[in-house]
Design a protein around this nucleic acid. Sequence first.
DNA 1: CGCTAACTGGACCGATCGGTATAATCAAAT
DNA 2: ATTTGATTATACCGATCGGTCCAGTTAGCG
Lengths: 183, 183
Amino acid sequence: MPDTTPPARGTARTRLLAAAAELFYDEGINTTGVEALAAKAGVTKATLYNNFRSKDELVVAYLRAKLEATRASLAAHDPSGATPAKRVAIIFDTLATDIEAGRFDGCPFAKAAVEVPGNRAAMAVVREHHDAVVAHLTDITADADVAETIAMIYDGAIIAAKATGTADPVVHAGHAAARLLAA
Amino acid sequence: MPDTTPPARGTARTRLLAAAAELFYDEGINTTGVEALAAKAGVTKATLYNNFRSKDELVVAYLRAKLEATRASLAAHDPSGATPAKRVAIIFDTLATDIEAGRFDGCPFAKAAVEVPGNRAAMAVVREHHDAVVAHLTDITADADVAETIAMIYDGAIIAAKATGTADPVVHAGHAAARLLAA
DNA sequence: CGCTAACTGGACCGATCGGTATAATCAAAT
DNA sequence: ATTTGATTATACCGATCGGTCCAGTTAGCG
């Protein structure tokens, strides 16, 4: 019986990305030092720099992974046979559930745009994410204008949820999006 | 002829707040050191700590000043006799103009919420700002639900503008808000 | 005048930052 | 069995962080 399980749990690179996903998102990008990153991944700083040229590059890799996760999540929660109204409703319901469960504390891309605006590669991923969300909504609504507006309501709801400390604004946003779609 | 002009330009506290307004907003809160703050204000670090207990307290004072500026700006650009549609349109037009002129690069309160989420007093000001904007929109629309939705569209437009690098989303948002108001 | 309070110019603190260097260790492939 | 490359532990780098302290200067005010 050959041992198929890797040494610790995935490669050093994988574990570093997992650590980045946790620390960058929860503690902030600028607030998280490379030392803490390596420690969380169970790896030394030298290994970090053996896998990534710099912290900036790790930030970009972190965002790229988040972008793929977002794409996967959007697809996974999107029932093929449902109406546009139902498909949009699910997006807002999922967000509200995640906020209430403490799984969501602000859009990682919006956060990155504030924390590392000087990282051009990172900003490119931020834009990719925004385009992907609008594209997905356009696919659902078959109306680019409506899709863009719903995307704004979505992002605005996230901000309102943070400002008020509740998920209520997201529910409100879902209704607003539904009304917009019905018109 | 008595010299009525103050030593430099206002008190040390005033100049520190002016320096904070520039550096915190343009360079970021965490990225700006107290040394740079004091230098920009033409003051020593000791004076900074003579006027503010800590950097965190200066951050709060900076946000409070921004909040007052926001209130004043909202009132100043709000013609008394105009229709709700016109009053809302002005808000989005002003934002679009500011972005195009390079005067606006993201909501300072949303930025602060990302950069210093652990500063509770600062977060309270963020919430105050959000409430003030919604209250102002409610005063215009006479409909709390519509006001909340327009506020989300507004915040979402700011994010879209940052992600795309243009002010176009704000124009789109203005139209969306107008449509919402007409219904 | 003399008092007070603010401000200056620095030195200084411990901690942390991102990043590099070195030498030893370890596992896998040849 | 030997080579290779990744990883380890650790020490180190210069720079900066927020914050403190002190001796000396300046300005307003009774």
